[in-house]
Simulated assay, not measured.
Amino acid sequence: MVERVTATKEALHLIEKLKMEHGDLMFHQSGGCCDGSSPMCYPLHEFRVGEADVLLGSIGGAPFYMSKDQYDYWKHTQLIIDVVDGRGGMFSLEGPEGKRFLSRSRVFTENEQLSLKK
């Protein structure tokens, strides 16, 4: 089965490091504003999700959410969470590491889209 969100080995390594420091984690794909549009990493339950959020799946055991509005735009793609050098969102846990999470994407094939509808 195809996953709506995955992570690179580098991202999974950083997630494990952050879990050692902060405990269980969660992600929310930022919709813009002060932190741009990037995956934000928080201690589990520190960011409140609600009816306006969609659970896409999990990466490294951490649930990954996105707002419904963004989901409507991105639902035809698989998000691939990567990590690069640099400063990301000021509220995201990876900031002090000198790294930032980054969303990449690819369009689902027709077969993948059909399997997601089942």
Rank of each mutant, 00 (worst) to 15 (best):
C33M: 15
D82K: 05
K19A: 06
T109Y: 02
S30P: 06
Q78G: 08
E110Q: 10
G61Y: 03
I15R: 00
H76A: 11
G86D: 03
E16T: 06
L79R: 05
G31R: 01
F108Y: 07
H13I: 11
V54A: 01
G36D: 05
S103P: 15
H13V: 13
S105R: 15
P96S: 07
M90V: 14
L79F: 08
F64I: 02
M20W: 11
G89Y: 00
F27I: 02
K117I: 09
T8R: 06
S67G: 13
G98E: 04
M40C: 14
A52Y: 13
V5A: 03
S92N: 00
G23K: 01
R48K: 14
K118L: 14
Q29G: 10
Q113T: 09
A52R: 15
D35K: 09
K99M: 10
S38T: 12
D72W: 09
V2S: 12
L12G: 02
E97I: 07
T77I: 06
L102P: 07
S37W: 10
I59R: 03
E21D: 10
Y71S: 04
R48M: 09
M26A: 05
T109K: 07
M26D: 06
L18W: 04
V84R: 15
D85C: 07
G50K: 00
P63I: 02
I59V: 07
S105E: 12
C33T: 14
D85N: 11
M90P: 08
A11P: 01
D85G: 08
L102A: 10
I81G: 04
K117T: 13
H22Q: 03
T8V: 04
D69I: 15
A62I: 03
K9R: 10
K117Y: 07
D35Q: 13
H45V: 09
H76N: 13
I80G: 08
G60T: 01
G31N: 04
K75Y: 03
V107I: 12
F27V: 02
L93D: 02
S67D: 13
L14P: 00
F27S: 00
T6F: 02
C34Y: 05
I15Y: 00
G61S: 05
S37K: 09
D53L: 04
S58K: 12
I80C: 09
G98C: 06
E16M: 04
M26I: 03
M90W: 15
R106A: 02
V49S: 02
L12K: 05
V84P: 08
G89P: 00
M40E: 14
L44I: 05
F64E: 02
F101R: 06
